[in-house]
Computed example of a mutant assay.
Amino acid sequence: MSFKETPFYTFASPDITLVAKDQEFRVHEYVLSPQSGFFKAALQSETKEAYERCIKLPEIQPNIMTEVLNWLYRAPLTSPLDTGDTAFSTPSLGRMKEILHAHEFFQIKGATREYCKFIEDELQKLGTDPSVRHPREDGNGTFHTFHRNYTSNVVEILNEVYKSGCTINKEAIARLVATIAYDNNGPESRLSRFATTTEKLQDPNGMFFRDISLALTTLFMSR
C-alpha cells in the first residue's frame, strides 16, 4: 500500500503540490502541516509557496519523498535495508541516511523511531544459531552476520540513528558487539574496522559511544 491508497488520502481531494526533483506529488495540507514543522511554516504563512499551493523540493529525491509521505499518511513502511548478509550494504547506508536526513529537514517527529526498529530487527538476527561459534560470511547456515567489508557501514548507520534522537536497545547492541568481537585478529578484522571507523567519524554521537563502550566492557568482563 502506498500513501495514495490510505484513508487519509482518499478522504478528500489533494490541495497541495510537492515537486521533488522533476516529480509531482499531490497531497493534503491537513495531513502535512500538523506533523511537519517545515510544511506548517511553508503553508501557513504569507509566502509564495502558500499562495501558489506548490512547494518545490529540488534537494529531495522522489523515492525519498515517497518514503516520507508513506509515513505521514500512515501507509505500511518497508525496510530500506537489504536483506540477509547484505543488510548493511553501502546502498542500505545511503538509503537510510537520505531517509533520516529528509525527516530532519521536514522537521517530522517520531518517524525515525520506526526506521530505528528496522535496524534493531536486523541486529537481533545476528548469531541466531548458538551452536555455531564463529559468524559465517558465505550466507549459508542459520548464523546471521554481515561481511566485514560492511563494518564501517554499520558504524555510520548507528551513528546517524543516534544523531536523529533514537537509541538501539541493549540486546541488539549486545548481539552486534558479540559478532564484532568474534572477528578480532588483524587490521582487517571487524573489531579493527569498527574501532577505526568510529574514531574517524566526523560528527560522532556521545550516546552511541556510550552504548557501544558499555556493551564491549560487559562482553569482555564476562569472558
Rank of each mutant, 00 (worst) to 15 (best):
D211H: 15
I16D: 06
E5C: 09
I99V: 11
F11T: 12
N149Q: 08
D129Q: 07
S36P: 00
G84L: 06
K40N: 13
K4D: 09
V154C: 02
Y150A: 01
T47R: 06
A42H: 08
R113M: 09
Y9G: 13
R175K: 15
F106G: 01
S45R: 02
D203A: 04
R136E: 09
L72M: 08
F220M: 06
E67S: 09
H147C: 02
Y162H: 05
K170R: 14
P58T: 11
T217H: 05
E24N: 06
N205K: 07
D183C: 07
L219K: 10
R175P: 00
T10M: 05
L72I: 12
S33Y: 03
A195S: 12
T112S: 10
A111H: 03
M1H: 02
K56P: 07
F11S: 14
P135G: 02
E5R: 11
L191C: 13
D138V: 13
L81W: 07
V27F: 02
C116W: 11
I99L: 03
L100P: 10
K117M: 06
I168L: 02
S45V: 00
V155M: 05
R210M: 08
K109A: 13
D211L: 04
Q107L: 14
E104K: 06
T66G: 07
A195E: 10
D211K: 10
F11K: 15
A215F: 04
Y9L: 12
A102G: 04
L176E: 14
S36L: 02
A102L: 10
G37A: 06
R148E: 13
L191D: 14
F143V: 12
D15W: 02
K40F: 12
N149I: 10
S164R: 07
P14V: 01
R190M: 15
P58I: 14
N63K: 09
P91S: 03
T66A: 07
G165D: 04
V27L: 03
H103Y: 14
S92V: 07
E104N: 11
L77H: 07
Y162I: 05
R175D: 10
L201Q: 06
T10P: 00
R74T: 14
P130K: 00
K40A: 11
L57K: 04
T179Q: 03
I168W: 03
E114W: 09
L69V: 12
S164L: 01
N63T: 08
S89T: 08
R223N: 08
F88Y: 13
A20F: 13
D82I: 04
S89R: 05
S192E: 08
S192V: 00
F220W: 10
S152F: 00
L123M: 11
V31E: 10
K56R: 14
N159G: 04
M207I: 15
P187S: 05
K125W: 01
K48R: 14
P204F: 10
